[in-house]
Design a protein around this nucleic acid. Sequence first.
DNA 1: GGTGTTTTCGAAAACGTTTTCGATGAAAAT
DNA 2: ATTTTCATCGAAAACGTTTTCGAAAACACC
Lengths: 344, 344
Amino acid sequence: MKEATLKEIAHQLGISITTVSKALKNYPDVSEKTRKAVIALAEELHYTPNSFAVNLRTKESKTIGLIIPEVVHHFFSGVVNGIIAEAEKNGYLVIILQSNESLELEKKQVALLINKRVDGIIMSLSNESNNDAHIKEILHKEIPFVQFDKISKLIPSSKVIIDDQKAAMEAVQHLIDMGCKKIAHIRGLANPQNSIDRFLGYKKALEKNGIPFDSSLVYSCKSITFEQGVDFAKQILEEDKGIDGIFVITDLVAVGVLAHFNEKGIQVPDQIAVIGFSNWLVSQVITPKLSTVDQPSYEMGVAAFNLLLEEMVCRKEGKIFEPKTIELPTSIIMRESTMKKIEA
Amino acid sequence: MKEATLKEIAHQLGISITTVSKALKNYPDVSEKTRKAVIALAEELHYTPNSFAVNLRTKESKTIGLIIPEVVHHFFSGVVNGIIAEAEKNGYLVIILQSNESLELEKKQVALLINKRVDGIIMSLSNESNNDAHIKEILHKEIPFVQFDKISKLIPSSKVIIDDQKAAMEAVQHLIDMGCKKIAHIRGLANPQNSIDRFLGYKKALEKNGIPFDSSLVYSCKSITFEQGVDFAKQILEEDKGIDGIFVITDLVAVGVLAHFNEKGIQVPDQIAVIGFSNWLVSQVITPKLSTVDQPSYEMGVAAFNLLLEEMVCRKEGKIFEPKTIELPTSIIMRESTMKKIEA
DNA sequence: GGTGTTTTCGAAAACGTTTTCGATGAAAAT
DNA sequence: ATTTTCATCGAAAACGTTTTCGAAAACACC
């Protein structure tokens, strides 16, 4: 069974390939009669243009690449969703690659995308990644490029981010507003920027409210897991420092804290209030419902694609593109885990 | 800045395009000297082959398409993960499209993938979908095709599934083994096959154990949400029928049930045992930890890709391919929500 | 030096499309 | 009748690659 091509249609209709192509693309210089005949036959033969040939001619693939550390992650799923939806709306397809937080894999993925001649690349860096050769290659090839979430400031490209520091400040401020006097912070891994920023936000919030910073109230995760939360909760109870509020790097860990407090009969929020980060699904279904910081993941995806689109259009017109940075607002979601009945 | 091409390299080296191409692809009929020169210059110019041209020649895109109802879903994320990983291992790229459970969108997606000339398509049908024209088109174009999870038996293609009915039977059997005498079922939507199969499994398990089926113990979800679970839990307590075990269509709903039971001080599992389905992340972090049925999502992805690969290879060799169906085993994960202390 | 063999290279066609530019014929204007 | 305009079409080049097939050169053998 032969693939239907312009040539085949032209042959069967006894006309030229040119005319067939024009008929299908509504060029004005083809008569209504032949146009109808062409369209009819094209339909009959299930003709679909060969995108390779089209792309080869037009130099456009109408495809963008997306590299993220992990698909199976609530936040990234949301972003992916936003990007795909927006891309589709604009006639673009999305190739998704996973770096699995490995720099080596990330380099391979970039090479693949360049090879595929994608029209643009959206990327959230893996933890190890920085201003490396493979990123420079993207810029060198002048491929439109947008970073989101985990970015490197050293790389001159558009960016979509949230202000982790500010969001963290607001979270801690919320705890203070709820009457917490001694607030602990369970922070993330050492390196990632957002882990650092959230820690700094925590510190700033304390400072702003005249609460002295006490480094013994900061617990550092070795991994971002439920169990880690359980362990720190245990430790916090054993140490009995009089902590009455905890700001946790992310919901998953916070849920671990809640689980252990539940088990030990600690009243949340009345004895200890807990606030997480990222608004995972689980935060809404846990008891007590977990207060958290909402990151607009879907909107970040939309924004990232639109920035990319802007650059693609700009580049196509031969203009030079000035990278932009979009900072999306976060919001505190107040739920049971911080809503004390007796306010101070 | 010009893109590096074979022609450019050939020109600079004063040799033919043919030789350059051969040198880069390790053909035996090119001298070591020219090969080295070519490779050196290619590197210097950051040459990467234009995949459009390659694909146009070779008729292979080394890309597969994946259509799923939703990315932001624990189960699908796992499958996506498996597919991407396995595809990558074999040098394939994955284009992911979302149908959002809309038949119309699904049709559009299929058309897009066909247009992109993907080498194969993996798909989980949307709820509305069946043996429609767009699926027939895939088969008609002889594009390798694998269905997974939500499949249509009417479509002759390879399939990767789990035995929902058997899995449900085992779940209910587990409740019975734990001493439950009066078991309710919160079932899913009316149409989807897996919702029906799990219901049938529930029925069969009762039958097998000589427990009469009572349709008043079956509650039908209007939507798959946490709130739905809360509502049914409320209803079950109000009706006070002496139910001591519940098999729930999926973990999210089951967690809603648990939340309400927790609130009302119902002892789970001692008063009422609860088992869910799918092993969502949330089931491991809820209190009490939710027993559930594990679906091997990652493995399904791997299996799906490998079936597709098999068909792609087979087709390329001109042989006819006989569709296969792989049924992956599920397993009961016993956690706190069913482990009664006092067994009957 | 002739014959055969091996090594190394290149011309050319093909993949399917888009687009430019000119050709053709008919209708309209002079 | 001649020119001008207009509508409709097609030839051909180009995109960058792969691969077939034959040519040329280099070498070996008698």
